[in-house]
Design a protein around this nucleic acid. Sequence first.
DNA 1: TACAAAAAAGCAACATAGTTGCAAAAATCA
DNA 2: TGATTTTTGCAACTATGTTGCTTTTTTGTA
Lengths: 152, 152
Amino acid sequence: MAVRKQIESSLSVQEPLKRKGLSVTDSRKKILQLFMQQKGALSHGDIEKKAGATFDRVTIYRTLQTFLDKGIIHAIPSSDNAVRYALCQDECGPGHHHHQHIHFICGRCKQTFCLDDIVTPDLHLPKGYQSQEIDVLVKGTCKQCSATSKRA
Amino acid sequence: MAVRKQIESSLSVQEPLKRKGLSVTDSRKKILQLFMQQKGALSHGDIEKKAGATFDRVTIYRTLQTFLDKGIIHAIPSSDNAVRYALCQDECGPGHHHHQHIHFICGRCKQTFCLDDIVTPDLHLPKGYQSQEIDVLVKGTCKQCSATSKRA
DNA sequence: TACAAAAAAGCAACATAGTTGCAAAAATCA
DNA sequence: TGATTTTTGCAACTATGTTGCTTTTTTGTA
Ligand SMILES: [Mn+2]
Ligand SMILES: [Mn+2]
Ligand SMILES: [Zn+2]
Ligand SMILES: [Zn+2]
């Protein structure tokens, strides 16, 4: 049973890699799996912890960069010098990420979430400024943490 | 002439420090001056370069933290692990920063600007999510860079 | 102005984060 | 399977950030 599950998830992890023209390696499978199992976003450090000593630190850096380049993950800015990454839902590809959703950073559980249904608003910029990409970061208390504090 | 200018700016730099209840030291004056002379935002690294070997790296870290705590500067998130800082225009104080403006990151000149007149939009969050603070980061080409490319 | 108390700066040592070149290992494809 | 291409691991290095402790500077008061 455990074996079967492992095979299944391994298979489902191979597809996206091949579709993006990447060779399928242990580290790429493992790291992609981590992202898929995860509700929130992951920093380099998070992955290092979760993957344990399985891979070299450098491999994780390079894998994240590759995933970013290929449009498998997107970067989420932060004010704590720890950029988070999350899977792209939309059809992102090499060179072009086009996300419209906003990001939520919970001060309680410290997790960062993609709110895929909330679209970034239109902005009226001053004359001369040309916008290419908009990131909206909302800090507050997430759904889960709001619920638990209400119950307590 | 040069001396007079120096005295003037030194005076104008002391006021804000005293008003926030901070003792006036060389590094605080110098760093605050750097922010006031600057159109764009500054990272820790920027300050280290601009201040030269005048101060210890640790002093710069601690000064930025102090300025942040007292509401003299605010932090601007980034996707490159280099948080920028800029002067607070609004009346921020210990504990409470309340900014409504958005930030513009120019891909050309790599500078980050506060667009103090552009107010962060209202967002409709999913049920359960509680918002405390909103950061809007716009990436694109700034006014100045747009102008120079048009001319060329 | 001089002095004591409080605050900040500097220094050292350390921890963590990120980069690069190169040789060994693994994946791909014919 | 075996040659070719790609990726990984390792080492060495740079950069970034933190902490404890001592010295220096600032402040408020006598
Ligand atoms: Mn996202
Ligand atoms: Mn700002
Ligand atoms: Zn939460
Ligand atoms: Zn620019």
